[in-house]
Amino acid sequence: MRFKPYPHKSGKIVRWLFPNLLWFKPSEKPTIYLTFDDGPIPEITENVLSILEKFDAKATFFCIGDNVKKNPHIFKKVIDAGHSVGNHTQNHLNGWATENEDYFDNINKCKNTILEEYSKLEMFEQVSLYRPPYGKLTPEQFQKISTEYQIVMWDVLTGDFDKFLSRKVCLQKSIECTESGSIITFHDSIKAAKNMLYTLPRYLEHFSEKGFIFEKL
Protein backbone atom coordinates (compact mmCIF):
# COMPACT_ATOMS: atom_id res chain seq x y z
CA MET A 1 0.00 0.00 0.00
CA ARG A 2 1.33 3.43 -1.00
CA PHE A 3 2.14 5.96 1.71
CA LYS A 4 -0.31 8.81 1.90
CA PRO A 5 1.16 12.06 0.58
CA TYR A 6 3.07 14.08 3.16
CA PRO A 7 4.67 17.52 2.95
CA HIS A 8 8.45 17.61 2.77
CA LYS A 9 8.33 21.23 4.01
CA SER A 10 6.48 22.21 7.16
CA GLY A 11 5.90 25.78 6.00
CA LYS A 12 5.19 29.00 7.86
CA ILE A 13 1.46 28.37 8.38
CA VAL A 14 1.94 25.22 10.43
CA ARG A 15 4.66 26.96 12.46
CA TRP A 16 2.22 29.80 13.12
CA LEU A 17 -0.57 27.41 14.14
CA PHE A 18 1.67 25.52 16.57
CA PRO A 19 4.18 28.11 17.82
CA ASN A 20 5.15 26.20 20.96
CA LEU A 21 6.61 23.36 18.90
CA LEU A 22 10.14 23.82 17.59
CA TRP A 23 9.99 23.61 13.79
CA PHE A 24 12.71 26.04 12.76
CA LYS A 25 15.64 27.76 14.44
CA PRO A 26 16.81 31.07 12.94
CA SER A 27 20.54 31.71 12.99
CA GLU A 28 22.81 34.61 12.04
CA LYS A 29 25.07 32.19 10.16
CA PRO A 30 23.84 29.85 7.41
CA THR A 31 23.02 26.88 9.65
CA ILE A 32 21.19 23.57 9.27
CA TYR A 33 20.07 21.44 12.21
CA LEU A 34 20.35 17.75 11.36
CA THR A 35 18.21 15.28 13.30
CA PHE A 36 17.98 11.51 13.17
CA ASP A 37 15.09 9.44 14.51
CA ASP A 38 14.73 5.82 15.65
CA GLY A 39 18.29 4.71 16.45
CA PRO A 40 20.73 3.69 17.58
CA ILE A 41 20.97 0.80 15.11
CA PRO A 42 24.10 -1.31 14.46
CA GLU A 43 26.03 -0.33 11.32
CA ILE A 44 23.42 2.22 10.21
CA THR A 45 23.98 4.72 13.02
CA GLU A 46 27.69 4.04 12.85
CA ASN A 47 27.68 4.82 9.12
CA VAL A 48 25.86 8.06 9.88
CA LEU A 49 28.50 9.00 12.43
CA SER A 50 31.26 8.40 9.88
CA ILE A 51 29.52 10.58 7.28
CA LEU A 52 28.93 13.38 9.80
CA GLU A 53 32.56 13.31 10.89
CA LYS A 54 33.71 13.69 7.29
CA PHE A 55 31.80 16.97 6.99
CA ASP A 56 32.50 18.18 10.55
CA ALA A 57 28.74 18.09 11.14
CA LYS A 58 26.94 17.84 14.46
CA ALA A 59 23.42 16.45 14.84
CA THR A 60 20.70 15.53 17.29
CA PHE A 61 19.67 11.89 17.61
CA PHE A 62 16.14 11.23 18.84
CA CYS A 63 16.63 7.79 20.31
CA ILE A 64 14.22 4.96 20.95
CA GLY A 65 14.93 3.79 24.48
CA ASP A 66 14.73 0.11 23.59
CA ASN A 67 17.38 0.61 20.91
CA VAL A 68 19.61 2.44 23.40
CA LYS A 69 19.21 -0.48 25.79
CA LYS A 70 20.10 -3.02 23.08
CA ASN A 71 22.99 -0.98 21.63
CA PRO A 72 24.65 1.00 24.44
CA HIS A 73 28.03 0.89 22.70
CA ILE A 74 26.58 2.74 19.71
CA PHE A 75 24.85 5.25 21.97
CA LYS A 76 28.26 5.89 23.53
CA LYS A 77 29.73 6.52 20.08
CA VAL A 78 27.03 9.15 19.43
CA ILE A 79 27.88 10.92 22.68
CA ASP A 80 31.64 10.60 22.23
CA ALA A 81 31.33 12.23 18.79
CA GLY A 82 29.81 15.33 20.38
CA HIS A 83 26.23 14.96 19.19
CA SER A 84 23.13 15.61 21.30
CA VAL A 85 20.31 13.16 21.99
CA GLY A 86 16.60 13.41 22.63
CA ASN A 87 13.71 11.22 23.76
CA HIS A 88 11.68 9.39 21.09
CA THR A 89 9.76 7.09 23.50
CA GLN A 90 10.89 3.66 24.63
CA ASN A 91 8.99 1.76 21.92
CA HIS A 92 8.13 4.28 19.17
CA LEU A 93 4.53 4.80 20.26
CA ASN A 94 1.91 6.69 18.30
CA GLY A 95 0.43 9.30 20.64
CA TRP A 96 -2.90 9.31 18.82
CA ALA A 97 -3.30 5.56 19.34
CA THR A 98 -2.03 5.29 22.93
CA GLU A 99 -3.70 6.03 26.25
CA ASN A 100 -2.12 9.01 27.96
CA GLU A 101 -0.93 7.10 31.02
CA ASP A 102 0.78 4.46 28.88
CA TYR A 103 2.28 7.11 26.62
CA PHE A 104 3.75 9.14 29.48
CA ASP A 105 5.08 5.97 31.09
CA ASN A 106 6.81 5.02 27.84
CA ILE A 107 8.44 8.44 27.59
CA ASN A 108 9.71 8.11 31.15
CA LYS A 109 11.14 4.67 30.40
CA CYS A 110 13.10 6.16 27.52
CA LYS A 111 14.30 9.01 29.70
CA ASN A 112 15.47 6.61 32.40
CA THR A 113 17.20 4.39 29.84
CA ILE A 114 19.15 7.35 28.47
CA LEU A 115 20.01 8.64 31.95
CA GLU A 116 21.26 5.19 32.93
CA GLU A 117 23.64 5.19 29.96
CA TYR A 118 24.72 8.74 30.80
CA SER A 119 25.56 7.63 34.33
CA LYS A 120 27.75 4.80 32.98
CA LEU A 121 29.65 7.46 31.04
CA GLU A 122 29.92 9.54 34.24
CA MET A 123 27.76 12.22 32.68
CA PHE A 124 24.89 13.99 34.41
CA GLU A 125 23.05 15.50 31.47
CA GLN A 126 19.33 16.20 31.36
CA VAL A 127 17.06 14.82 28.65
CA SER A 128 15.33 18.01 27.57
CA LEU A 129 14.38 17.37 23.93
CA TYR A 130 11.44 15.25 22.82
CA ARG A 131 10.18 14.30 19.39
CA PRO A 132 6.87 12.42 19.11
CA PRO A 133 6.99 9.38 16.82
CA TYR A 134 5.09 10.12 13.59
CA GLY A 135 4.79 13.72 14.84
CA LYS A 136 1.53 12.72 16.55
CA LEU A 137 0.44 14.17 19.88
CA THR A 138 -2.95 14.89 21.42
CA PRO A 139 -3.52 18.31 23.06
CA GLU A 140 -3.47 16.66 26.49
CA GLN A 141 -0.18 14.95 25.73
CA PHE A 142 1.32 18.19 24.47
CA GLN A 143 0.35 20.05 27.64
CA LYS A 144 1.92 17.43 29.89
CA ILE A 145 5.10 16.81 27.89
CA SER A 146 5.84 20.48 27.28
CA THR A 147 6.24 21.06 31.03
CA GLU A 148 9.41 18.94 30.95
CA TYR A 149 10.63 18.93 27.35
CA GLN A 150 11.14 21.15 24.36
CA ILE A 151 9.06 19.35 21.76
CA VAL A 152 10.95 19.30 18.48
CA MET A 153 9.25 18.79 15.12
CA TRP A 154 10.88 19.61 11.76
CA ASP A 155 11.03 22.11 8.94
CA VAL A 156 12.11 19.51 6.37
CA LEU A 157 10.99 15.88 6.28
CA THR A 158 13.29 13.95 3.95
CA GLY A 159 10.88 11.07 3.36
CA ASP A 160 13.79 8.63 3.59
CA PHE A 161 11.43 6.12 5.24
CA ASP A 162 9.21 5.97 2.14
CA LYS A 163 10.07 2.85 0.14
CA PHE A 164 8.22 4.30 -2.86
CA LEU A 165 10.39 7.43 -2.91
CA SER A 166 13.50 7.10 -5.07
CA ARG A 167 16.86 8.01 -3.64
CA LYS A 168 17.31 10.82 -6.15
CA VAL A 169 13.94 12.38 -5.35
CA CYS A 170 14.67 12.08 -1.64
CA LEU A 171 17.87 14.06 -2.18
CA GLN A 172 16.20 16.57 -4.50
CA LYS A 173 13.30 17.29 -2.14
CA SER A 174 15.62 17.56 0.86
CA ILE A 175 17.80 20.14 -0.88
CA GLU A 176 14.90 22.12 -2.38
CA CYS A 177 13.10 22.49 0.95
CA THR A 178 16.12 23.45 3.09
CA GLU A 179 17.00 26.98 4.10
CA SER A 180 19.13 28.46 6.85
CA GLY A 181 17.52 27.58 10.17
CA SER A 182 15.90 24.39 8.90
CA ILE A 183 15.53 21.44 11.24
CA ILE A 184 15.73 18.43 8.93
CA THR A 185 14.65 14.91 9.81
CA PHE A 186 16.45 11.78 8.68
CA HIS A 187 16.03 8.30 10.15
CA ASP A 188 18.90 6.03 11.20
CA SER A 189 16.65 3.00 10.85
CA ILE A 190 16.70 -0.16 8.76
CA LYS A 191 13.67 0.93 6.75
CA ALA A 192 15.17 4.31 5.84
CA ALA A 193 18.77 3.20 5.36
CA LYS A 194 18.76 2.91 1.58
CA ASN A 195 17.49 6.44 0.94
CA MET A 196 19.18 8.02 3.93
CA LEU A 197 22.69 6.70 3.30
CA TYR A 198 22.45 7.84 -0.33
CA THR A 199 21.03 11.26 0.46
CA LEU A 200 22.96 12.27 3.56
CA PRO A 201 26.53 12.60 2.16
CA ARG A 202 25.31 14.32 -1.01
CA TYR A 203 23.11 16.67 1.01
CA LEU A 204 26.02 17.56 3.31
CA GLU A 205 28.36 18.07 0.37
CA HIS A 206 25.86 20.35 -1.40
CA PHE A 207 25.35 22.65 1.57
CA SER A 208 28.97 22.53 2.73
CA GLU A 209 29.98 23.95 -0.65
CA LYS A 210 27.49 26.76 -0.08
CA GLY A 211 29.08 27.68 3.25
CA PHE A 212 26.50 26.14 5.60
CA ILE A 213 27.40 24.70 8.98
CA PHE A 214 25.59 21.80 10.66
CA GLU A 215 24.77 22.16 14.35
CA LYS A 216 23.05 20.10 17.03
CA LEU A 217 20.03 21.37 18.93
Rank of each mutant, 00 (worst) to 15 (best):
L121E: 12
D188N: 07
C63L: 15
S182W: 03
C177D: 13
K109I: 11
N94H: 14
T98W: 07
K120E: 09
T60K: 05
N71H: 09
H88M: 06
G135A: 02
L115V: 08
S50Q: 14
F75D: 04
T178G: 07
D188S: 08
N106H: 05
V78G: 06
F75H: 03
N91F: 05
E116R: 12
N71F: 13
P132W: 00
E117R: 06
S50N: 14
P133T: 06
E122M: 11
G135R: 01
C110W: 10
L49T: 01
L49M: 08
Q150R: 12
D155M: 11
K77E: 15
T158S: 13
Q143W: 10
L93C: 03
E116Y: 10
G82S: 09
Q90I: 11
K144G: 02
I74L: 08
N94E: 12
Y103C: 12
D155W: 08
L93M: 09
I151C: 09
E179Y: 11
Y130W: 13
G181I: 05
Q126N: 15
T158G: 11
P72L: 04
V85N: 05
L52H: 04
L165W: 09
C110E: 11
I145F: 02
Y118I: 02
K191W: 07
L49N: 01
Y149E: 07
K69D: 10
F62I: 07
Y149C: 03
V152F: 01
S166P: 02
L157K: 06
Q143C: 08
S166C: 03
I175Q: 00
N100G: 09
N94L: 14
G135E: 05
K168P: 02
E176G: 02
G95E: 06
N67T: 07
L129W: 14
E116P: 01
I114K: 03
R167M: 15
V68R: 00
T147Y: 07
N91V: 00
N108K: 15
S119D: 13
L52C: 07
D80Y: 08
H73F: 12
F161M: 10
I175H: 05
K173G: 05
D162I: 00
L93Y: 00
P132K: 06
T185V: 14
K136D: 05
C170L: 03
P133L: 04
Q143N: 11
D56S: 15
A81I: 01
K69Q: 12
K173S: 08
E148Q: 13
I151N: 01
E125V: 05
R167L: 12
I107K: 01
Q90T: 01
K173D: 10
L93W: 00
E148F: 13
S84I: 02
Y149S: 07
Y149Q: 13
A57C: 04
G65Q: 05
T89D: 10
D66L: 08
G135W: 03
C63F: 09
I74S: 08
E99S: 07
A97K: 15
W96R: 10
Y130K: 09
E179A: 06
H73P: 05
Y118T: 02
N67W: 07
N87H: 07
K109L: 14
V169E: 15
S180K: 09
W154P: 00
T147M: 14
K173H: 13
S189P: 00
C110T: 12
G95P: 06
Q141V: 09
K69W: 04
E179I: 05
I74R: 02
G86Q: 04
I151S: 03
E176P: 00
K109S: 11
